[in-house]
Amino acid sequence: MAETARAARRRQVLLLVGATALLGVSSGIFETTFNNFLSDTFHLSAAARGRLEFPRELPGFLTALLSGALFFLMETRIAALASLGIAAGMMGLSLWGGHYPSMLLFMVIWSAGTHLVMPLQNSITLALAEEGKQASLLGRLGSASTAATVIGCGFVWASIDSLHLDYAAIFAVGAVAATGAALFMATMRVHSAGVRRKPFLVRPQYGLFYLLSVLFGARKQVFVTFGPWVLIKVFEQPASTFAQLWIASSIIGIFLRPVLGAWIDRYGERPVLVMDALLTILVCLGYGFAEHLGLGRHAVHLVYLCYMMDQILFATGMARTTYLDKIAVKRDDIAPTLSLSVSIDHLVSMTVPALGGLLWAAYGYPSVFLAAAMVAVVNGAVATRIRTPARV
């Protein structure tokens, strides 16, 4: 019986690996292309790019409501629907993304699918993990996703530099990958991720986790919005450069994520999140002042390093997930709380880019990264307050 259960668990993990990998390919294609697509197609200013984050992040803010509205479905079914949303958004951008209103619509559809599937992937992974090895499994799944991202980035690099494909063709391939992920998710059968969930949940015991989510929402905009915009607008880098940087940082992440997961299981979440905050401060200062350090043409290489480090540090997010897993009052609290955390961090994400765009326009881009560094300081201070109950 135990052997049968282990075999069933292994099959579900393999299906999750397949879905995660295909979503990684799709994400690698989108994230390394979208900013350049906006710049080349619509010629946006930094302020306009910042304002665009409001509709892009709005579905993230609504994640708890979207997930709650689908509480009668199994988590794997919701993840399949979310993956189809990603596919629909990217295909819409492929076919009709050249018109600004259409781009907004399909960007929002893509965003809804992406933000809905993120917490569900973590919740399903925790449901499949053996006790005491949650972070290790999150690390291995993250490694698979990162490896797949390399494939997506490599496709973008080859598409632009060698195949000379346009953005429409690139987005279409990303849509096909996301559709494949939906098929994998739809075939999964995970018992503890298959029960009906609470539509909405808030507990005071999770207050520190909620605060970490708020700070993460502010911090991540450095990577999502303003970091790439520095490379595009200040250093005039093409989409193929982003693909190469993603590939380099993703290769590092393939090996780093499992090690980081094992470290979290052994030493806990607090040192990992404090380290993340300290390194993020250095990244922000590098972004903001590389051009002013007298490095000449090598300044862009420092920003390359910051961009890669910024992406690599996103792996520490698994520490927030395992922290929630350890403090959860009930196992079925995890999925709705993870969904709520996405909504919380996106409440911040919707406002920070607009404010950052105003800062950029009024005082120059270094001011944006000084503000981000201050947020990282607060994030580190909050992380030192993490306490988890001893595992029996």
Rank of each mutant, 00 (worst) to 15 (best):
A2S: 12
R6K: 04
R10N: 12
V13N: 00
L14I: 07
L14T: 08
V17H: 09
A21L: 12
L22M: 02
G24N: 02
S26T: 00
S27G: 03
S27P: 05
I29T: 05
F30W: 15
F30L: 05
F30E: 12
E31L: 01
T33R: 10
F34N: 05
F37N: 13
L38R: 02
S39Q: 11
D40T: 02
L44W: 06
A47V: 09
L52C: 09
L58N: 08
P59M: 01
F61S: 09
L62N: 01
T63E: 04
S67E: 10
G68N: 09
G68D: 05
A69P: 01
E75P: 00
I78M: 04
L81E: 14
L84Q: 14
A88W: 06
M91Q: 01
S94K: 11
H99L: 11
H99M: 14
P101I: 08
P101E: 10
L104I: 12
L105A: 13
A112Q: 09
P119F: 06
N122A: 15
S123V: 12
S123L: 02
L128I: 09
E130V: 00
A135G: 05
A135C: 00
G139L: 15
L141H: 03
G142F: 01
S143T: 05
A144K: 06
A148P: 10
I151P: 12
C153G: 07
A158W: 06
D161S: 07
D161G: 10
D161C: 06
Y167L: 10
A168T: 09
I170M: 04
G180T: 05
A181L: 03
V195H: 15
R197M: 05
K198R: 15
P199Y: 07
V202T: 05
L208G: 02
L211C: 15
L212S: 10
S213V: 03
S213K: 04
V214Q: 12
F216L: 13
G217Q: 14
K220L: 02
Q221K: 01
V222T: 13
V224P: 00
F226I: 08
P228Y: 15
P228A: 02
K233E: 15
E236D: 09
Q237Y: 00
Q237M: 15
T241G: 05
Q244R: 10
I252R: 00
G253F: 11
P258K: 11
P258A: 06
L260T: 01
G268M: 15
R270K: 15
P271N: 11
L273M: 15
V274Y: 14
D276T: 12
G286M: 14
G288D: 08
E291P: 02
G294Y: 15
G294I: 11
D310I: 14
A315L: 01
T316F: 05
A319T: 11
R320E: 04
R320W: 12
R320K: 13
Y323T: 10
K326V: 07
K326I: 07
I327H: 03
A328R: 10
D333G: 08
D333S: 09
I334F: 02
A335W: 06
A335D: 10
T337I: 03
T337K: 04
T337F: 06
S339M: 03
S343H: 08
H346T: 03
V348S: 10
M350I: 13
G357T: 02
Y365K: 02
V368P: 06
F369P: 00
A371Q: 03
A373M: 07
V375H: 07
T388P: 08
P389S: 07
A390Q: 15
A390I: 07
